[in-house]
Design a protein around this nucleic acid. Structure first.
Lengths: 149, 149
DNA sequence: GTACATTAAATGTATATACATATATTTGCA
DNA sequence: TGCAAATATATGTATATACATTTAATGTAC
């Protein structure tokens, strides 16, 4: 469906405004879809993202700072997301002896198994983005990078 | 900056995964920038979006349902955003006599003046999206529509 | 070595999002 | 008419986001 119909707005100021709104709207749509995929596994999107970063580090732990650095949303609150993962026994947290200001966050076996299962089932990357051809995906990456320049 | 550097991840599974993450990241970035522009005016992004819809309807009122229909994030809670706008005297809310289930939400003069001021100052549409050429903006719109097909 | 700045993480508060449920009203049909 | 289904909005709870502040530990200059 064209963006005009999606939000019932037939007129945009120009192609730029339309692209702007289209970008935000499409991103939101993809996130809603992905959250729905994650729900059966009891994870929210930010929780999943944190776990993915931790898996990338495994078997090394990560500090909260490192998590923030790699998160897409840098202003979200890594501390509290880790709180919830800890409550679900998906990560452990312990003070780092070398620098006692920092905390070693480590993904648990339980979480690794969960991610494995999610990889096999839903999360294996089938989204609307796959409607694009390889060339179109490249072009999209180019345009997005240019927007952030 | 390339998306690889932005989130310190050099490798992606493929061009699609990279485009997916790039899309979400770029959208988030634009929203953070826009929120910063709005802050001096005491408005959040969702509050601004509701006001814009109401201005589009003015001098007619809008129901909550209409607001939801036109909002980008349809699952957000229009009722409570309207609560806050009402507290700031930017909208009025009164039960609609024809259908007492519904509510007439009307933008106030104060809010119209505020939007006017915001148009003149910051919000006049200068964002990263303007880094694109007209043709590129069109191409972006096409790609995004295709993703949502 | 003490004082001050810096850094890492946690916490507090307001707002927004996600989703389930409640309440009031209207619609539609037996 | 009467009553169930549908609709419009509001509310409750958990989580996340945005931003300011606090606390503890470390680094650095004197």
């Amino acid at each position: 469906m064209r963006i005009e119909e999606e939000i019932k707005q037939e007129q945009f100021r120009n192609e730029y405004q339309k692209a702007y709104i289209n970008l935000l709207y499409t991103s939101s749509r993809l996130q809603v879809e992905q959250a729905a995929l994650f729900k059966p596994f009891g994870l929210t999107l930010p929780q999943f993202n944190i776990l993915r970063i931790l898996r990338g580090q495994y078997p090394k732990p990560a500090t909260i700072s490192l998590l923030i650095e790699r998160m897409m949303d840098k202003t979200s609150n890594a501390s509290r997301i880790v709180d919830r993962l800890e409550a679900k026994e998906l990560v452990t947290r312990k003070q780092c002896p070398e620098d006692r200001r920092t905390v070693d966050v480590l993904i648990t076996e339980k979480a690794l198994a969960l991610l494995q299962k999610m990889d096999e089932c839903a999360g294996s990357g089938r989204t609307g983005i796959n409607n694009l051809s390889e060339t179109e995906a490249q072009e999209l990456n180019r345009l997005l990078d240019k927007i952030r320049e």
